[in-house]
Amino acid sequence: MAGAAPYSDERAREIIADHMGLEGPALPILHALQAEFGHVPEAAVKEMAEALNVSRAEMHGVVTFYHDFHREPHGRHTLKICRAESCQSMGAEKLANDFLNKLKLEWGQTTPDGKLTVEAVYCLGLCAHSPSALIDGEPVGCIDMQKLDELAAEARS
């Protein structure tokens, strides 16, 4: 993620404290931690477990259950390519495989320069413009190899 801050226990505790007034605050906290640090470090999980009064194992279970939260830093940019049925009906599977092969990546991996992580996503709700993708949260419809190449080049420039 672009502009992720380095991890500090103190900042993590602040973020957690900001959300303690919510009912069931775990997911909002995790989203906020990831937005701040670019990922959810193990140390933050420990802080959360303490603040929420649950075991570390339980907290670990929550973090790892959800596809969105990652334990290691991602690339500077994240490209999510949809591989759900609608996009497959427009050839997304082959397109994505060819693109990954070209970058010598597998789903979820990051380019060696640390600039681009490519993830699979299962439906972006852009199904009348299949195949579709999301680059750093911005939607792109009717992607083809040319568009993917452009996105990758821009991300890695």
Binding site: L22, E23, G24, P25, A26, L27, P28, L30, H31, L52, G61, V62, F65, Y66, H67, D68, F69, V121, Y122
Partner: peptide, 27 residues
């Protein structure tokens, strides 16, 4: 009303797992 954002788990569209997720647990 409060808006809560999920975290990429399809199964949380099932109502009971959605409730667990809202509560801050695994879905």
């Amino acid at each position: 009303i409060e808006l809560r954002i999920g975290a990429g788990a399809y199964v949380c569209g099932e109502e009971t797992s959605l409730l667990d997720s809202l509560e801050g647990k695994r879905g």
